[in-house]
């Protein structure tokens, strides 16, 4: 499975990748993008099997990225990994077509709970 990790913070991308390993998902191919615009280009050029995206980013937010991905016809599973996990944001994420939202700080267990069903399906 190819996982695209989108976050403007390099340190947070590394933490997400490390947490994937800790959650038992270390065998996936990992790609990285530092904002929504760069991610969109990668998604079109080499479609991933899962996108894990921050919400609040320069250039293009995670929500705008998801809107653009869905508008292009892609149904790639898309999860937010973000510092905000309010009910309002979860509702907006779901309405836009997100599969899940993991709020920071997160645990390997939260990643496993979100990703395991995707790998099994």
């Amino acid at each position: 499975m190819k996982v695209l990790v989108v976050d403007d913070s390099r340190v947070m991308r590394q933490i997400v990748i490390r947490t994937l390993r800790q959650a038992g998902h270390g065998g996936h191919e990992i790609a990285e993008a530092e904002n929504g615009r760069a991610a969109l280009e990668q998604i079109h050029a080499a479609p991933p099997d899962l996108v894990l995206s921050d919400w609040n980013m320069p250039e293009m937010s995670g929500l705008e990225l998801l809107d653009r991905v869905r508008a292009s016809g892609s149904t790639v599973p898309f999860g937010f990994v973000t510092s905000e996990g309010s009910e309002d944001m979860r509702a907006r994420a779901t309405a836009a077509g997100a599969t899940f939202l993991i709020a920071k700080p997160f645990t390997p267990e939260a990643f496993a709970e979100a990703l395991d069903p995707l790998v099994r399906s």
Partner: peptide, 27 residues
Amino acid sequence: EDAVGELANVIGGNVKSLVPGDGVLSL
């Protein structure tokens, strides 16, 4: 800068969840 900024971002995002209303978190 990235590490300290992200620490502020995660703490700020969680503080935001405690305040009334929706609001917007800056970069």
